[in-house]
């Protein structure tokens, strides 16, 4: 089936498949980071809601270690959230750029495959 397709278009199809995979990877990363941002927001909210004298712990491997400075923990979590949000924005831009290239390649491939070179094989190769 690929024999009828010119090498240039074959190359475009390969690029298109690569881009599809890249978009999937970026989308998955974005979903994970967005979930992380929501989790961090919720944690900060819970810490701010907790009583002044509430005892707070943080994971260290499979152990929980008591946090002495709660305010510092909240600051750390807020910074982590900001960093994650920046990463989400970067991925957003990357995603947009990849989708534009994906769309443009798709149009080029569709046009090339609907063009006369592919749709109607050359007479000499047709007559065999």
């Amino acid at each position: 089936m690929m024999d009828n397709i010119p090498p240039k278009v074959q190359n475009q199809i390969a690029q298109f498949q690569q881009l599809t995979q890249q978009i999937q990877i970026v989308t998955t990363q974005k979903i994970q980071l967005e979930a992380q941002v929501r989790e961090l927001e919720k944690t900060v909210e819970e810490l701010e809601k907790a009583a002044e004298d509430a005892v707070v712990f943080k994971n260290a491997g499979s152990l929980l270690i008591q946090v002495k400075d709660r305010a510092a923990l909240v600051t750390e979590l807020k910074e982590q959230k900001e960093t994650t949000e920046v990463r989400v924005k970067t991925l957003d831009r990357q995603d947009k750029h990849l989708r534009e290239r994906h769309k443009s390649l798709q149009d080029q491939i569709t046009q090339a495959l609907q063009g006369p070179a592919v749709a109607a094989p050359k007479p000499e190769s047709d007559s065999g």
Binding site: L40, K42, T43, L47, A54, V56, K58, N59, L77
Partner: peptide, 12 residues
Amino acid sequence: AAVGVGSGVAIR
């Protein structure tokens, strides 16, 4: 009990 509130943080 220490109950998790996400991001590896728990509150007693």
